[in-house]
């Protein structure tokens, strides 16, 4: 093992194989490793700058090499997974129910993957996509949409009567999954490396969202505007715009949930289940994050009843 790149790859691989990272999606693993590197810089720097690893380099240089290696490793897993989601999991026939003439599934998935690859070159987009991607990866959407269609309560009413989606449960699931995929579209526009997102909540202003929509339409010409609008609106606060689509509001909540989601987590005795806990906290912070409180209430009941 001679080159710095090989050493960095070996180090990163070693971290990725750690059992503590099981139950996290690829982007969550990336965040975990970045947090580890940040948090332990003082201890790692002296050892990693020794002759055995990266001689003569300071911590910033070592960090850059490690991050580059980490991004490469994560991208391999991430894009393979996205390819699978785009081509095998999402069925784009729901677009026909939105008035699209004929959907070329293969061409559409290729187009989407290209946009994703372009977006995910930006670090802030990767961070913004962590939640939505985790929700997609662990199919959090499907279980909630199943329950929403069984209960036929507020969210169902908003989807079918207010947003007027004339489609079944599977089509709505595909719609929301597509919405989650495109949620980081707000990072298409960034000024001087700075995104226009609120750093704490990840939300953008209405006017900025309209700008993004214009850019996104050019990037994804074969995607109906309704889907693109919903995707962009999932980053707009419900407080700021009471007319954003139900799919956007639902994707905003599920995407945020995905950020701290961990599969097969052991719940302490005496603690509530992870989804129920998260939704309960989100209900109390709904104004802060710009969520639809009524949707949170219904999702909370679903999580409580199913012990999610």
């Amino acid at each position: 093992m001679n080159s710095e790149s090989e050493k960095a790859d070996a180090f990163v691989q070693r971290l990725l194989q750690n059992p503590a990272l099981n139950g996290f999606s690829a982007l969550q693993q990336e965040e975990q490793i970045l947090q580890f590197l940040h948090g332990n810089a003082a201890q790692l720097a002296p050892t990693l700058s020794s002759s055995q690893f990266f001689p003569g380099k300071n911590w910033n240089q070592i960090f850059a090499v490690l991050v580059s290696s980490l991004t490469r490793a994560i991208d391999r897993t991430l894009f393979a997974d996205l390819q699978q989601i785009l081509t095998e999991r999402i069925d784009y026939t729901f677009l026909e129910l939105l008035g699209q003439q004929r959907v070329n599934q293969e061409a559409l998935s290729k187009e989407l993957l290209l946009v994703m690859k372009k977006l995910l070159q930006k670090q802030e987009a990767r961070r913004g996509f962590t939640g939505p991607y985790t929700a997609l990866h662990f199919a959090i959407t499907d279980q909630y949409v199943d329950e929403i269609f069984t209960r036929k309560s507020y969210i169902h009413f908003e989807l079918t009567k207010v947003q007027r989606l004339r489609m079944g449960k599977e089509e709505v699931q595909n719609f929301i999954q597509t919405n989650l995929l495109l949620k980081p579209a707000v990072f298409l526009i960034s000024a001087g490396g700075q995104s226009q997102q609120d750093r704490a909540t990840g939300m953008v202003q209405n006017q900025f969202a309209e700008k993004v929509l214009g850019v996104l339409k050019k990037e994804l010409r074969s995607m109906p505007e309704q889907v693109l609008q919903s995707a962009v609106h999932s980053s707009v606060s419900f407080n700021a715009n009471r007319f954003i689509e139900a799919t956007a509001r639902l994707a905003a909540i599920l995407g945020a949930r995905g950020r701290s989601y961990q599969a097969n987590v052991k719940v302490d005795r005496g603690a509530d289940s992870p989804d129920k806990s998260w939704l309960s906290t989100a209900r109390r912070n709904y104004k802060f994050y710009g969520f639809d409180i009524k949707m949170l209430d219904e999702l909370y009941k679903i999580a409580a009843e199913n012990v999610w």
């Binding site: 750690n18 490793i33 947090q35 940040h38 201890q43 909540t201 109390r284």
Partner: peptide, 27 residues
């Protein structure tokens, strides 16, 4: 908990990694 959640929102490096130095000690 809601206050803790709001405090941590947006602070990417504020979280605690599941990894520890003990995991790479042998390296």
């Amino acid at each position: 908990l809601p206050m803790k959640d709001r405090e941590a929102a947006g602070e990417e490096s504020s979280g605690t990694s599941s990894l520890t130095m003990g995991d790479v000690k042998d390296l």
